[in-house]
Simulated scan of single mutants.
Amino acid sequence: MLWNERLRYALFHRGSEEAARIFEAARKQGLYEPVLQAVLEAQPRWHDDPQIQAAWETAEAAGLGVEKAREVLNAPEITATLELDEADIQAFEVKGTPTFSVKGEPLPRLNPQQQLYDLVRSEVAATR
């Protein structure tokens, strides 16, 4: 899977900011996708753990150079990414995850996958 668009980080849980910083450090090492996938699959092991040790272990097993990652965790560009996401969360009044929107319009949570599919399909059709 290729991420053409950047994920937005919603830092609602203890440890989530550090996890987001791990992902961005992995991006700097060219390992964003494998680290993201592995750490998210292991989320039940580290969710709400402020030290997120299991996330670090999983990221390392996925190839992340932990020492190098720790050196850049608080890099200005990573902090700027998280601040931008927080501003967007406030602007769009995101209260939980997952949250879906198309062109700034939030989707009701009843069946977001089908609604997301339908909205994207209609937007694509409108551009043709």
Rank of each mutant, 00 (worst) to 15 (best):
A59H: 12
A91D: 06
D49Q: 08
A75H: 13
V39M: 01
V72S: 07
A62L: 05
Q115R: 15
L107W: 12
L36Y: 13
K68W: 06
Q113F: 00
H47Y: 15
Q115C: 06
K103N: 09
P108F: 10
D85I: 15
D85V: 15
F92G: 01
A69G: 00
L82Y: 04
W56D: 01
P76Y: 05
E105W: 14
G65T: 07
R45H: 11
Q29P: 03
K68D: 07
L40E: 14
G30K: 03
E67G: 02
G30R: 09
F100P: 00
D88Y: 05
T58E: 01
L36H: 04
P34R: 11
S101W: 08
I89N: 04
E57D: 13
I52C: 03
V102L: 13
R45T: 09
V66P: 04
A26T: 14
P76E: 10
Q115P: 14
T58Y: 01
T81R: 12
R21Y: 07
R70T: 09
G65E: 09
L40S: 12
Y32N: 02
K68Q: 11
E77W: 12
G65N: 04
R27F: 15
A38I: 02
E105P: 07
N74G: 12
F100N: 01
V72F: 07
V72P: 01
R70I: 07
N74Q: 10
I22S: 15
P112V: 07
P76N: 08
A87D: 14
G65Y: 05
A62W: 00
Q90Y: 04
S101D: 13
A69S: 03
Q29D: 03
L110R: 10
K103D: 10
A91I: 10
Q29R: 02
R27I: 11
I78T: 09
L110K: 15
R70L: 11
Y32C: 06
A55D: 07
S101H: 03
E33I: 08
D48E: 10
G63E: 08
A59Q: 11
L31E: 10
E71H: 05
Q37W: 09
D88S: 14
E24F: 02
L36K: 00
D85N: 15
F23V: 15
A55K: 02
V94Q: 02
A42S: 08
T79W: 11
L73H: 01
E67T: 09
L82G: 03
Q51S: 08
L64I: 04
G104I: 03
W46L: 00
T99V: 05
G65W: 05
H47D: 11
A80N: 09
Q113W: 01
P112A: 09
L116K: 05
P108A: 11
A62N: 07
Q37L: 08
P76C: 13
D88R: 10
I89F: 02
V35K: 02
T99N: 09
